[in-house]
Amino acid sequence: MKKARVIPVLLLRNGWLVQTRQFRRYQHLGNPVTAVERLSEWAADELIYLDITQDDGYDTGRSDLGHPNRQSFFEIIDDVSRAALMPITVGGRIRSLRDIENRLARGADKVCINTKALAEPVFIEQAAKEFGTQCLVLSIDVKVTGAQRCVMAEGGTRATEWEPEQWACEVERLGAGEIFLNAIDRDGMKTGYDLDLLATVSTAVTIPVIACGGVGDWAHFAEALERTRVDAVAAANIFHYSDQSVVLAKRYLCERGLNIRPPDVLTGFLAA
């Protein structure tokens, strides 16, 4: 039987791993590759790796960190794919088919697209035809404005006309393979997922929905899996602050009787 997935999300900004809150307030968490090595050892089911750099500046020397990160994003993907014997989704700043091709060639299994798809929905169709629906993850960022939920573009900075379930159905029709659903208001708040949003979108489409935004407790993963039809639960911050976080999360979910891949620790295997 197919298992529900537990997916750590890594956010990269100017070459560094960061933590965010409501898509703002960045805090550095350190080296982007060592984090992947850890998550790989803890046998995460998959990884989502998002480059949220707004300008073109790849950090070449933060004096306060003492060890400048001189790697380009592509070099980082190389290292990440070597460290992770698991599926990797890479997103951020994808604007052309060539951008997708470059990421897949570097060892990404899937790409995550957002702003470009909203600006030009036909891009989804073109990408699906070229690379297959299985490697297209559509990221949908949602913000609550008054009584309504609104799909946001450009890293949560620009509102669009779309309601989440409407846009979700549209991207499915155009050839998206999965939906990565983010509640901006919940990002970094640790108050749990926006369950209504997850339920609405996951029943509107037949493709898998990955839940994100708001996890502060392992129980929040369970809530989403028990009460909505999401196929995977993702989170960023919570996985970076405790030793063996993925193992602990999985142990909790297994004990709650959820259908997930059991916890595992892969020490020593990935030394190469």
Binding site: T133, Q134, P208, R261
Partner: peptide, 9 residues
Amino acid sequence: LPLPHIGWN
């Protein structure tokens, strides 16, 4: 069930 079959089984 959705196709493609994507995930751990």
